[in-house]
Design a protein around this nucleic acid. Sequence first.
DNA 1: CTTCTGCTTAGACGAACTTCTAATCAGCGG
DNA 2: CCGCTGATTAGAAGTTCGTCTAAGCAGAAG
Lengths: 125, 125
Amino acid sequence: MSKQELPVVDVTAGACCAPLACEPLNAAEADELAPLFKAIADPVRLRLLSLIACHEGGEACVCDLTGAFELTAPTISHHLKVLKQAGLIDSERRGTWVYYWINPAVLQRLSAILEPQQGAGLVPA
Amino acid sequence: MSKQELPVVDVTAGACCAPLACEPLNAAEADELAPLFKAIADPVRLRLLSLIACHEGGEACVCDLTGAFELTAPTISHHLKVLKQAGLIDSERRGTWVYYWINPAVLQRLSAILEPQQGAGLVPA
DNA sequence: CTTCTGCTTAGACGAACTTCTAATCAGCGG
DNA sequence: CCGCTGATTAGAAGTTCGTCTAAGCAGAAG
């Protein structure tokens, strides 16, 4: 990836602390979180995420994924790029094939934000 | 709301069961879930959700919300409509003002889907 | 080196989204 | 009834998004 055009999201930023006990989200936090949710807010990307997560070994080759959709390879590649730039997945080339795997920490963070549980999420309790 | 134009999401559908132990999401499930995530995948709507959830009494008047943004009232109204049609919030008019409150069940469902925990989410464990 | 396969990048196009202004509806008070 | 305030609807403008085709890069094999 020689040319970096899409914004790079710092996945680790703010990932440590349980977000917003119940001070409402400020604009900066919302601006940081929204792109993460946007990345999973697509049927194809949701399924890709699921396919990768559920694949044996916890990782999947692109060739394992394209067959599940009636979409062209470039389109799948595009969606994988979106997920990767959001920090939700990571990838590595091994010889001929490129493998993708989930970054559970980011998913966990998003999950915790939506959890209606004391001190841990968007909703009081 | 005399004219119903935007699609109505059946919030209760599939809300009972822990989603997809680890059979990957099928297309129909993904098509149903993606609009919910899309509804929260916006900085303004994330903050609206948070503001409503954290407001005393668990509900907020529109007039409590508009002040937090540098956006016009119709824009806020639009975002509230999106959240409402996704089933994330509900509302009621009481005299002059309209009050909004969170539907925690839907948020909980989304949270559970992202949870990397056995048998409950997108990610194995 | 050449060719083949796997995957990504580049660019284009139509659909969807966010925001605005202007207009409308709903309730309250003179 | 009339005007005022709170909130929504309608329609338009600009931007972003999802998908495609065509082209390019990376590794393996002849």
